[in-house]
Write a protein that binds this DNA or RNA. Structure first.
Lengths: 204, 204
DNA sequence: CCTACCGATCGGTAGG
DNA sequence: CCTACCGATCGGTAGG
C-alpha cells in the first residue's frame, strides 16, 4: 500500500484533534516562525490533518493569535495580583512581582515570544485592549517603584525607566532560557528578582 | 485628466529612487509590520514606484533583510569596541558599553526592532553568522562582568545572567523610546548605564 | 522606470 | 475528518 504512507504528512490512522491541540500547535509554530511566517497548512501538517479541517476547531488564523495573546495577558495580570496581594512592603512587592513575571517567561516561553513579536499584528479594537492590559501591568510595577522611592527604601531617578528595564529584562528570559540548561526556572526568577531590587537600589 | 492622479499610488512625476531609499523604506515597513508582514508592493508604494522597479536596487526581499541585519550587527560591535578601547576599569567599561548600546537603541529604533524580530527569518548560513556576532557581543559584556567580579568591584552570582539582563533591558528602549518624549536619548542611555552598574552591584 | 505576466501559495469556503 | 476549489496576493521575471 504505497499510497497509505507516502510521506510523513500522511498518517496511518485518521488523526483526531481538539481546539486545545490546534492552539498548542499554533503556539509552537507562531513562536518559532512568527505569525505571518506560519501558514495554516503547517499547523495542519503538525497535527496530521488537512488545512480545511482546522476550521472545525477555530474561527480563523487571526482568532488563534487573539486567543493566545489575550489569555497570556490575562494570566500575567492574574499572576501579578496573586503575587503581591497582602504584601505591603514595596521591596517585597517588587521582588514577588518580578519573580512571578520572570518565572512565567521561563515556563511559558512560546506564549511570551508570540505576545512580544506578533501582538501588534492584531487589528483594532483588539490591539487597544491588549495595549491597555500591558499598560496596566507596567503602571502597577511603576507604582510599586514610586511608592518605594517615596518611602525612601528605593532610590531611582525615574520610576518609569526602572519599570521598563525590569519588565523587559524579564521578557528576555523567554529568548534564551532552556529547560535542560544550567539553572532552573526558579533560580533564574530569583536572580532576576534580585536584579530588580538592585536596579531600584534597595539596600538589603 | 482623472487617470493621472487617480489614487495616491500614482505620482504626478516619475519617481527616482536609490538603493539607500529602498533600504530605508524597507527598514520602516519591516520595523512596523514585520518582515513577513511586509509586501514588496508596500515598499514600492512608499517610494512611489511599481514593484518590479525595486529590482533595479536590490537582489531580493531577503537580501534587504540580510543587509539591514548584517550592517546593524557590525555597527553594534564597532560601537562597542570604540567605547571600551583603552578603558581598563571594569566599572567604566561596563558603563560605556551599556551606554553606547542603550543609546543606539534609542537612536536606531527601526534597525533594532527588525534585528530582534526578524533576524531568525534568515536562512542558513547567514543565520549562523548573525548568531555568532550577537554571541560575540554578549560574551564581551559577560567578560567585563566576570572580570569585575574577579577583582571584587562587582558582586554577581552569574555573569551570564547579568549580561543577558543588561543587554535585553537596553534592547527594550527601541520599543518605547520617543524622540519627542520627556527624556533625550542621552539621558536614557546614562540611566540605563547606571542600571547596569547596579545590577552587578558596583559600589560607587 | 514601466506593463504584462508567471507559478506558487495564501486563508478560507462548499459540500459531503 | 476529507476533497475540490476559490479569489487574492505573494515574490519575482521578461522584455522594453
Amino acid at each position: 500500500m504505497p499510497l497509505a504512507d507516502a510521506g510523513s504528512a500522511a498518517p496511518a490512522t485518521r488523526a483526531v484533534v481538539s481546539s486545545a491541540a490546534v492552539l498548542d500547535a499554533a503556539l509552537t509554530l507562531f513562536a518559532t516562525r512568527g505569525y505571518h511566517g506560519t501558514a495554516l497548512s503547517q499547523i495542519a501538517e503538525a497535527l496530521g490533518i488537512r488545512t480545511p479541517s482546522l476550521y472545525n476547531h477555530m474561527r480563523s488564523k487571526q482568532a488563534l493569535l487573539e486567543t493566545i495573546v489575550s489569555r497570556t495577558l490575562d494570566d500575567v495580570l492574574a499572576d501579578f495580583h496573586a503575587a503581591v496581594r497582602d504584601v505591603p512592603d514595596p521591596a517585597e512587592r517588587l521582588r514577588r512581582a518580578t519573580r512571578v513575571y520572570a518565572l512565567r517567561h521561563a515556563t511559558h516561553r512560546r506564549e511570551a515570544l508570540v505576545v512580544n513579536r506578533d501582538a501588534t499584528s492584531l487589528p483594532e479594537p483588539e490591539l487597544s485592549r491588549i495595549r491597555e492590559r500591558r499598560r496596566e501591568h507596567e503602571q502597577a510595577i511603576r507604582a510599586i517603584i514610586a511608592d518605594g522611592t517615596r518611602r525612601g527604601v528605593f532610590s531611582v531617578g525615574d520610576p518609569a525607566l526602572a519599570s521598563f528595564a525590569i519588565l523587559e529584562m524579564s521578557v528576555s528570559i523567554a529568548r534564551w532560557f532552556r529547560e535542560d540548561g544550567a539553572r532552573t526556572a526558579e533560580q533564574v526568577a530569583d536572580e532576576f528578582a534580585e536584579f530588580a531590587l538592585r536596579i531600584v537600589r534597595h539596600r538589603p
